Structure formats: structure tokens, C-alpha cells
Amino acid sequence: MRDVFVFACYTGLSYSDIAKLSYHHIHKGDDGEDWIIIDRNKTKNRCRIPLVPNALKILRKYKDYAWNESQGLLLPVRSNQKMNAYLKELATICGIKKNLSMHVARHSFATSVTLSNGIPIETVSKMLGHNSLRTTQVYARIVDKKISDDMKKLKAIL
């Protein structure tokens, strides 16, 4: 369950999209890299997400997992309720005070993985499959580091 959560942190996919993720969602992009191309369950918007090495590593780990092969899926995903229960248990064991859930992984992708590393909000919005930039701004808790980095760029220009 931990790997599915981490995979969500690296891709921004929701529980329902990861639960249906199969081999036909993986494509080679024009850049020669592996991408997930999937229509979101919730909005039906197409998401195009380049796979970072750590996400690919997780997919490779489960490549020959018997349950995945029989179902045609990429990851061993249990029910959302069961996933969230495991995550709560994992948080307790690790001393994490935050209420971990699959949605927290999506939020982490938007804030910690992408925005705070300089990925433009418009790009993040497209990868998350949002209908509007306004929806993404809910996730876009701008951190002090991002503000500081942006201001350094401005100071260099001025």
C-alpha cells in the first residue's frame, strides 16, 4: 500500500485513476520518455503525466505481480477504504501526525513535488486534469522557498 501512495505522490493520480491504471495507459512521448495518458474518472479530462524515475521503479517492482497480471493492472490497489486504513496505520507506526489518505498523495504531488520545485501552476493543472486553474490554486499552497526563489529571479532581472 505504501508503494501505491508513493506512486500517487510522484504522479498526482487520484485513487480511482490508479485503481484502473493499466498497460495501455503507458505511452512513449515525443521526448522518448514514458508517460501516463489517462482520462480522469472524475472529470473525464485527459491527463498526460511524464513518469519520473521513482514512479517507474515502483511500476517495475510490480511488473510480474500475479494479481496485477490477471487483472491487467499495473499496481496492487485495494479498496480506497482499505488503502486509507493502511495509510492511517502506517502514519501511526511512523509517528506522523497528519491524517494520511490517498488524497494527501495527490496534494503532495501538487505542492511538494511540483510547485515547490518550480513547475508552473499551469503545467501542474494539466497533469492533475483540472478543468480550470482556479481548481489547482486550492492545491497551490505557495511555500516560502518558492516565493524566495521567484524573488531572487526578479532581483537578478532588476
Results as ranks from 00 to 15, higher is better:
M1P: 04
R2N: 09
F5I: 01
F5K: 02
F7L: 04
C9N: 08
G12M: 04
L13W: 06
D17R: 01
I18R: 08
I18C: 09
S22P: 14
S22Y: 12
H24D: 15
H25I: 14
H27K: 14
D30P: 13
D31T: 04
D31F: 01
G32W: 13
E33D: 15
D34C: 13
D34T: 10
D34L: 14
I36H: 08
I36S: 08
I36C: 11
D39T: 12
D39N: 13
K44Y: 15
N45F: 14
P50H: 09
P50S: 12
P50E: 14
L51R: 11
V52R: 10
P53V: 11
N54W: 13
N54K: 15
A55S: 06
I58G: 05
A66F: 11
A66V: 10
W67N: 10
W67T: 13
N68Y: 05
E69Q: 15
E69P: 03
S70E: 12
S70N: 11
L75Y: 00
L75H: 01
P76T: 01
Q81D: 08
M83S: 08
M83R: 04
M83Q: 10
K88R: 06
E89V: 07
L90S: 06
A91H: 03
T92L: 06
T92W: 02
C94W: 12
C94Q: 12
G95E: 05
K97C: 09
L100F: 03
M102A: 01
H103N: 11
A105M: 10
R106W: 10
R106D: 04
H107M: 09
H107N: 07
S108N: 10
S108R: 04
F109N: 07
V113I: 09
T114M: 04
S116D: 09
G118L: 02
P120N: 00
I121T: 03
I121V: 11
E122W: 01
K126P: 01
M127D: 03
L128E: 00
S132Q: 06
L133F: 02
R134T: 11
T135C: 00
Q137C: 04
V138N: 09
V138K: 07
Y139M: 01
A140Y: 08
R141E: 10
K146F: 12
D150N: 08
M151F: 04
K153Q: 12
L154M: 11
L154Q: 04
A156L: 15
A156D: 15
L158R: 11
